[in-house]
């Protein structure tokens, strides 16, 4: 069962062209949890003076990671889409370091999944950003 879930989550991310474009790498997948990282790339810079990654790239990482957490939930939804996503930026990510997002789908109803996520660079004590979101849930086909 957990193999099936991990495989589904892996297929899920590999099938997303934009996740590939951002070089996202899937880490651990659990029951309603997911970890995805994104290597530092000069193409994703938001502030050329400091070399800090654009918040939008962090948003895309968070959104993908939250979606993966929903898909890995034991209720196995067949498809999900973002209803809303809020990102709080605590500090700029350190240039040159990969950013890793960890998302937890902490509650799921028949139609909505509630997710929170945190993004970190090498300094895992101090998050770069946190996210909270609501996602649509389409129940698995019988």
């Amino acid at each position: 069962m957990s193999d099936k879930r991990a495989r589904m989550a892996r297929d899920f991310i590999q099938a997303i062209p934009h996740a590939q474009a951002l070089g996202m790498q899937l880490g651990d997948i659990g029951e309603g949890t997911a970890e995805i990282s994104m290597a530092y790339d000069a193409k994703f810079i938001g502030d050329p003076v400091t070399g800090v990654i654009h918040g939008g790239a962090v948003s895309a990482l968070m959104d993908t990671c939250c979606g993966a957490a929903v898909m890995s939930h034991p209720d196995l939804p067949s498809v999900t889409a973002t209803i809303d996503l809020r990102i709080d930026y605590m500090r700029p990510a350190t240039p040159g370091q990969a950013i890793t997002a960890r998302a937890t789908c902490y509650h799921m109803t028949r139609s909505v999944a509630f997710v929170r996520a945190v993004a970190m660079d090498d300094d895992t004590e101090n998050p770069v950003a946190t996210a909270t979101g609501a996602f649509t849930v389409e129940p698995a086909q019988p």
Binding site: I16, P17, G56, D63
Partner: peptide, 18 residues
Amino acid sequence: KLIGNPRLPALHGGVTAA
């Protein structure tokens, strides 16, 4: 490269947010 759901297809939510 902006696609998030190739089956629909639809833009990635992260792209829209960004």
